[in-house]
Simulated assay, not measured.
Amino acid sequence: MKIRRMSHGDLELMTKWLNTKEVLEFFGDPAAPPSAGQLREKYGPRIDGSVAVEPYIAETAGKPFAFMQCCRLTDEDYKSYGYSMEETIYGIDQFIGEPELFGKGYGTQMVTEFLSFIFKEKEADAVTVDPELTNPRAIRCYEKCGFQKVKQIDGERKWLMEINRGRWAETL
Rank of each mutant, 00 (worst) to 15 (best):
G97K: 06
P45V: 01
K122R: 15
D48H: 04
A61Q: 12
Y56R: 12
T60A: 08
E121N: 08
L73I: 05
A124F: 02
A124T: 01
T88Y: 02
T112H: 04
Y90L: 14
G107T: 11
Y83A: 02
E54Y: 13
D75E: 14
T128V: 15
T112L: 02
M110N: 03
G82D: 14
V129G: 01
A124D: 02
T112N: 07
D130T: 11
E121A: 13
V53I: 03
T108A: 15
I118A: 03
L73M: 04
K120T: 04
G37M: 01
C70V: 00
F117H: 10
K104P: 15
E100C: 01
I89N: 05
P64V: 07
D75W: 09
F119L: 00
F119R: 06
A58F: 04
I89A: 06
E59A: 11
C71Y: 15
K63G: 04
C70T: 03
G103V: 07
G82C: 07
I92H: 07
C70A: 13
R72H: 00
D93W: 05
I57C: 00
M85C: 13
D75Y: 06
S50W: 08
M110L: 10
A124K: 00
E132S: 06
K120Y: 13
V51D: 13
L115F: 07
D93H: 05
G82L: 11
F67Y: 15
Y78S: 05
R40W: 01
P45E: 07
I118R: 02
E121I: 05
D48A: 09
E121G: 08
G44F: 02
Y83G: 10
G97E: 00
G37E: 15
C70E: 03
E87C: 09
K122S: 03
R72L: 09
G97I: 09
I96K: 01
D75R: 14
T108E: 09
S80F: 14
E113A: 07
D93R: 00
M68H: 05
C71K: 07
Q94M: 14
K79T: 13
F114R: 08
C71G: 05
Q94K: 05
P45Q: 09
T74P: 06
F102D: 08
F114W: 10
P64E: 09
G97W: 01
F65M: 14
I89S: 08
G44H: 04
P55V: 06
P131K: 07
Y78L: 05
K42D: 02
R40S: 13
T74C: 13
G49Q: 01
F119C: 02
Y81S: 08
R72D: 05
E123A: 12
D93C: 05
Y81P: 09
E86H: 14
A58I: 02
G107L: 04
A124N: 08
I92W: 00
F114L: 11
E113S: 14
R72G: 04
